[in-house]
Computed example of a mutant assay.
Amino acid sequence: MKKIKCSICGKKFTATSSRSKYCSDKCRRDGIRTNQRKLMKKKRAAKKQEKIKVSNPNISTSKKRKKSKSLLKYYRDLKNRILANEEAFDFVSRTVVEGIDVHEENFEQLVVERIKEQSE
């Protein structure tokens, strides 16, 4: 028979058939594993490209406007959470948002006004 070079380790071996590529079972398993990895990598890349190409007909191409948060409601909830936490632990903290203390009466309005001033 003919001497062939193993496609994994590079060692020369005597082939038992004309289709032999590997010198041992270990090299054969390693070869199958590398071929499978290459195949799956190729499949994943193709799937990723297909996902990118396919656009969802239910979504319009125009930019959707994000829902605007109610800042007043957000800061009111924040104040309530902080005050409830202080009450639960019988402790008064100093929490300042945008330079305004949470314990002030009209905390929410002052914070929202300060944010609007900064955004202008």
Results as ranks from 00 to 15, higher is better:
F107G: 00
E87R: 04
K3M: 11
D30M: 09
S62Q: 14
Y22Q: 07
E105T: 04
K42H: 04
E113K: 05
D25E: 07
D77L: 07
K26I: 13
L78D: 01
I115G: 02
K41P: 00
Q49I: 10
K63C: 03
D77H: 05
C6F: 07
K73G: 02
G10K: 11
R44I: 12
C6Y: 02
K2M: 13
I115Y: 03
V111P: 06
E98M: 12
K3C: 00
M1T: 11
R28P: 03
V54Q: 12
E50S: 06
K21E: 15
E120R: 12
K12S: 14
R33S: 08
Q109M: 04
K2Q: 11
F89C: 13
C23L: 09
R28D: 11
R76L: 10
K41L: 14
L72F: 14
Y74A: 02
E105N: 04
L83R: 00
S68M: 13
A15R: 08
E117V: 15
V92S: 12
C9Q: 08
K12W: 10
K53H: 06
S55Q: 10
R44N: 06
P57V: 00
Q109G: 07
S60H: 13
I52E: 11
R19F: 14
E105C: 00
K66W: 00
S7D: 09
A84C: 03
A46C: 02
F13T: 02
R29K: 15
N58C: 07
S18G: 00
K21I: 13
K21P: 05
N35T: 09
K51L: 15
I52L: 14
A15H: 06
R44L: 08
L39S: 08
R81W: 11
K51A: 14
R65H: 14
V96H: 06
S62R: 12
L83D: 01
A15V: 04
I32W: 03
T16G: 03
G99D: 07
S62W: 09
S119T: 11
K41Q: 05
E105P: 01
Q118A: 12
V112L: 13
F107R: 07
V102R: 06
Y75R: 03
Y22R: 06
N35A: 15
E113A: 09
D90M: 01
N80M: 05
L83C: 03
V92T: 08
S93K: 13
Q118L: 11
E104S: 13
K63F: 05
K73R: 01
V111Q: 02
Q109R: 14
R29V: 15
E87W: 01
V54W: 02
D30H: 02
E108C: 02
R65P: 00
R29C: 03
R33E: 10
S55V: 10
V112K: 03
R33N: 09
K69G: 03
E50T: 08
S68W: 04
K3P: 06
I59A: 03
L71Q: 05
C6N: 05
G31A: 15
L110Q: 13
E50V: 05
K69Q: 08
E113N: 14
S62L: 13
Q36M: 09
I8W: 00
T14E: 15
K26F: 04
K73P: 00
